[in-house]
Computed example of a mutant assay.
Amino acid sequence: MKAFVLEDGKQNIKEMDNPIAGEGQVVVSLRAAGLNRRDLYIPNRRGDNKKALILGSDGSGVVESIGERVTNFKVGDEVIINPALRWYETTDAPPKQFDILGMPDHGTFAEKIVISEEQLEPKPDYLSWEEAGVLALSALTGYRALVTKGQIKKEDTVFIPGAGSGVATYLIQFAKNIGAKVIVTSRSKEKQENAKKLGADIVLDTNSDWNQQLADETIDLVIDSVGGSTFNRSLEVVKKGGRIVTFGSTTEDDIQFNLRKFFYGQYQLFGSTMGSRQELREVLEHMEKYKMHPVVDRSFSLYEAQDALDYLNEGNQFGKIALKISQ
């Protein structure tokens, strides 16, 4: 089978052995896969391992074969891949055995994947292959940050710095479906307009004075995935006693803030990452209820995987980037 791999520090299309389903495993013929920023970081995080690794965490496809003792899926079923490995029930933090698909396990940038049936969910019928293929990682990350950790409620106001990321496009839709008011920021005029179309109530230029612009707003919750360049600015606008959830850092990791001001303001700070299978199933129920669609900015073929990663690295997309593998 064809796969896009990282091998000896280089990324390229390679012919790999067809996977075989073992006990409790399923081989999925992939129709689409989704890119995530972690795919950009893996080459620098893998160390000296030179063995070919298939990249990719998200995917959708059709069950091609099943191993012994597989009970929940049959050949021909349409499925999505859950990239949060071995995290089944919702807990305060991931279990020790938790990993994310795509390193060290082979990922989804390939024609086929073998994976435990525990990591599969039925594909929502109303979604295209590309929509289903970009769904799990970002939607799950956003849902846990917003709902499980952020405890968002109807009529809350949520502030989301950075409107164009894949997770942000899910956050906007989840929050609006729940009945919250949504405020986002972006430096890009195009992304600002796209965020409005998606449902954001207020859209700010990232470089504007947030304190001045939001003087008449009461921010209950901040969901921050940007990091050092926005954290303190977000802390300035959230209400006293308000909640901040952080799940990413696209700028510097190290942050200094006024600890005395923080504890006098009784702020609540939560870290979050990915989510459990239980939460992913809640995501799918929510999306089905509201017939919610992932935002796919652009699709590439598997053979254009490097071009897709380069496009992701530029940061100009609004929403998710998909790989079309077969239809």
Rank of each mutant, 00 (worst) to 15 (best):
G76M: 08
F159G: 10
S60K: 13
G164R: 12
E78A: 13
T141M: 10
K74G: 05
P95M: 03
F174G: 06
P122F: 15
K153G: 06
A132E: 05
G47W: 11
R144Y: 05
G76L: 03
L171Q: 00
A175H: 05
G59P: 07
L135W: 11
L101V: 04
L137M: 15
L53H: 04
K50V: 08
N72G: 13
L101T: 05
I80L: 09
H106P: 09
D125V: 13
L55R: 02
I80M: 11
T90I: 08
Y143H: 08
S57V: 05
K154I: 11
S165T: 06
K154C: 13
I172P: 08
G107Y: 01
G162S: 04
E121Q: 14
E68L: 13
D99I: 04
K74D: 05
G67R: 11
G166K: 00
K50R: 13
G102S: 04
G59A: 03
P104I: 04
S116Q: 09
Y88K: 14
L53N: 00
I81G: 03
G150E: 01
S60Y: 11
G102M: 05
F98I: 08
G102F: 08
E68A: 15
D58W: 06
A84G: 12
V158D: 00
G76Y: 00
G107C: 01
N82H: 03
K149N: 11
L171N: 02
S128R: 12
D105N: 15
G133H: 11
P95L: 04
F109P: 10
I66M: 04
I100W: 12
E89L: 12
F174I: 02
K149H: 09
G102Q: 04
V167Q: 00
P122K: 14
G142H: 03
S57Y: 01
Q97R: 14
I152C: 00
F109G: 07
L127W: 02
A145F: 02
D48Q: 14
V75H: 02
V62N: 00
G102P: 01
D156W: 08
L146Q: 08
K154H: 06
G162D: 12
P104L: 00
G164D: 05
T108R: 11
E131P: 10
E118H: 13
L140N: 09
S165M: 08
E117A: 00
A84T: 05
D99H: 15
T141L: 05
E121R: 09
L53T: 03
A84N: 12
S116Y: 07
A175W: 10
A175E: 03
P104V: 06
E118P: 06
Y143G: 07
D125W: 07
A139S: 13
L146S: 00
G47L: 02
G142Y: 09
G47R: 07
E121I: 02
I160Q: 01
L127I: 11
L85N: 03
D58K: 10
K51I: 10
L146I: 08
L137N: 06
F73A: 01
S116H: 07
P122M: 15
G61F: 08
A163M: 11
P83V: 04
K149C: 09
S65K: 14
T108S: 01
G142N: 03
L146R: 03
Y88C: 02
R86N: 15
V134R: 05
